[in-house]
């Protein structure tokens, strides 16, 4: 038994415990810091929950009341008749441009940067350019589309009444906007494939393209898919550039005879419709929320698919 100066007797174990804890009083700062971190995280996640609750509470009644009519009806000036039919169609066709143009070009560029290019000044320059393009605000891409596709090439992409502000102009702008993101995510997926896979293939005499096609790309495919799906989700929700290249706000009713005419004609997209209705009188409030529900449900499904793919196929080498 040891004795403290104050004459109290404490056990040796107690003395060791106290000296290990550093202070003899309880330390409140560590739990407080832990609590603060949890609070901040709960706040962040709480905003997301709050947003989703507000959106679904206000949007579902309109969706349930209107039913499929809301999903197919064209834009209109009365909220009871306005729907997102044209918007969904336009958004899907814009995604078509992204899939057809950005995916092959982006994956090809990533393959070049990761598999073909040696570490030259040109390669480093291209890498820097791609990273910076990914950080350019989306509205600047809208200006690019406006200057190049709508004004300079207007007669080509949208002759006649569209005066350049056609689906092609919007689709090309979107494709350019997404391209750097596809390159970056695909590069990361390619980089994760270990060098031994390539060396084994080279060792049995495969050419570089054969190595890439039959060995590297299959192993990198899940990562590439996840990245491209997420970049498509980003394009699906993108609004600002479409406003600049002239997605229709308001309403339009044109019958298109064939695909080319439709591609060269006017269009609208789901997020631009949300923006347009958001600026209308309060009678449109239900419609805005309903359109947001459609937008968010699509994005959540796409995101979930990407996360599932990543978890399902993720492998550690």
């Amino acid at each position: 038994m040891a004795a403290t100066p104050r004459g109290q007797a404490i056990t040796a174990a107690e003395a060791v415990r106290r000296s290990l804890e550093g202070r003899e009083r309880t330390d409140w700062r560590s739990p407080a810091f832990h609590g603060l971190l949890v609070l901040l995280l709960v706040l962040t996640l709480g905003v997301l929950a709050w947003l989703l609750t507000v959106v679904f509470l206000n949007g579902m009644p309109v969706l349930l009341e209107r039913g499929p009519d809301f999903l197919t009806a064209p834009l209109a000036s009365q909220p009871q008749r306005a729907g997102v039919g044209q918007a969904i169609q336009g958004s899907l066709m814009l995604m078509g441009f992204v899939v057809v143009l950005s995916f092959p070009l982006g994956i090809g560029a990533a393959v070049y940067l990761e598999e073909y290019a040696s570490d030259t000044r040109f390669t480093r320059f291209v890498n820097t350019v791609v990273r910076n393009l990914a950080g350019v605000p989306s509205i600047v891409y809208g200006l690019l589309g406006l200057a190049v596709f709508v004004v300079a090439l207007g007669d080509l992409v949208g002759p006649g009444p569209a005066s350049g502000r056609s689906l092609i102009a919007g689709g090309l702008t979107m494709a350019i906007l997404v391209l750097p993101i596809v390159i970056i995510t695909s590069s990361e997926a390619l980089r994760a494939v270990p060098a031994s896979i390539r060396e084994a293939a080279f060792g049995v005499g495969a050419t570089r393209w054969e190595v890439v096609r039959s060995h590297v790309l299959p192993y990198a495919a899940p990562g590439i898919f996840t990245g491209t799906i997420l970049s498509m989700a980003r394009a699906f929700g993108e609004t600002a550039p479409l406003i600049l290249v002239g997605a229709v706000v308001g309403g339009f009713s044109v019958r298109y005879d064939n695909l080319l005419e439709q591609l060269q004609g006017r269009y609208t997209a789901l997020p631009t419709t949300v923006y347009d209705w958001a600026r209308k009188p309060a009678t449109f409030e239900g419609n805005v929320y309903a359109a947001i529900v459609v937008l968010i449900v699509v994005l959540l499904v796409v995101n979930a698919l990407a996360i599932y793919l990543r978890n399902r196929f993720e492998r550690r080498w």
Partner: peptide
């Protein structure tokens, strides 16, 4: 949360 579009 990062995927929520800015219009929303």
């Amino acid at each position: 949360l990062a995927g929520i579009p800015s219009v929303v």
